[in-house]
Design a protein around this nucleic acid. Structure first.
Lengths: 181, 181
DNA sequence: GTTCGACCTGTCAACAGTGGAAAGTAGGAT
DNA sequence: ATCCTACTTTCCACTGTTGACAGGTCGAAC
């Protein structure tokens, strides 16, 4: 459960209402840890009960401004530095690859070609985002750029892999040789 | 929900009991789509109700052997070729990167160094697995090797990225320049 | 002969995440 | 005055996943 830490991280350098957080999730964290409005409000209440955040101000229309507490910062640091990151194991796309011999070799190659295309599109979208962000010195962007570079490398890798896999499939429809390094 | 399709995929070229499937998940699919025993039995019953699999034999100790039906194969092909693969969006590790400026630059670099090390270890483990599999011509291995190559590239990419990110962090603790291609 | 381990099937409670509905306030446009 | 839109919070039903529990058969070893 890292939604908790995502919220703490965002509150660490600004106070915000649930609505503010929702917009931050939609923009800066959309590609890293998406969260819906209902999750956020539930989590804010839980965090508040646990004493990790606190209401710093109450606005006009019921708006509640939340801020991180000392305990909250401690928890955030603890998670950042001491909790082992969990591996991302499930992959819808990779699962399909496992069963690719259930369709004809031609369909398999077509599937991989689509994968390559989709990865390429995502790569170009991220590149545009990176170029757009390169101009404005947004405080959020500092480490966001590290994540962005990760995305650029990842999508590039997916493209190359899909191309490689399609060739491999074409070369040896019956038995694949061991992967190259 | 792709557990359904993982089960269909495995049953597509062999009949198997729930227990057999459990072992297949533990071995060949462990890194792609983990599933627990309880999920499997529940899913088999659901699939059976939906007419996508059927009991082909009943063994001595209550063992039930399941086989895929025509509808099941149709569903599998449909999922493989026509359903858009969903992106894997949540990443525990990347989320941490976003909040890396909550700790000192030195701690941040130490974190990235650990990431690099963990990725390297996983890379070496996958390489050993690939070498071990290179010998035996397992029917499962055919497309499993494609997935394995994906893992090799992915872990290598993570290593390189963590190194790059650490350098980037060291070079510009206040404001990061735009990412290179 | 019993005990042990491998085989085999199932239920249950709990929780994270999703999507949608409900309901309310304030400010600006018509 | 009224309506629309943005803002704000909350609740509920549903799915997927997990881990624990609970049962059962069989072959082999002791």
């Amino acid at each position: 459960m890292s939604l908790r830490h995502a919220v703490l991280g965002l509150l660490a350098d600004r106070t915000a209402s649930g609505y503010d957080l929702m917009r931050l999730f939609q923009t800066s964290l959309a590609n890293v840890w998406p969260a819906t409005q209902s999750q956020l409000y539930t989590e804010l209440n839980r965090l508040s009960d646990a004493g990790l955040v606190t209401v710093t101000a109450e606005g006009p229309r019921g708006r509640k401004e939340y801020g991180i507490t000392g305990d909250g910062r401690a928890e955030l640091r603890h998670w950042l530095l001491e909790v082992e990151p969990e591996r991302n194991r499930r992959s819808d796309a990779l699962l399909r690859v496992f069963f690719l011999d259930q369709v004809s070799p031609g369909q398999g190659r077509a599937y991989l070609e689509r994968e390559r295309r989709l990865a390429g599109e995502r790569h170009r979208a991220l590149r545009e985002l990176a170029d757009a962000l390169a101009g404005e010195p947004d405080p959020l962007a500092v480490n966001g750029l590290l994540a962005l570079e990760w995305g650029l490398r990842f999508t590039r890798m997916q493209e190359e892999w899909a191309e490689w896999a399609a060739e491999r499939l074409a070369a040896a429809p019956a038995a694949a040789p061991p992967p190259a390094d």
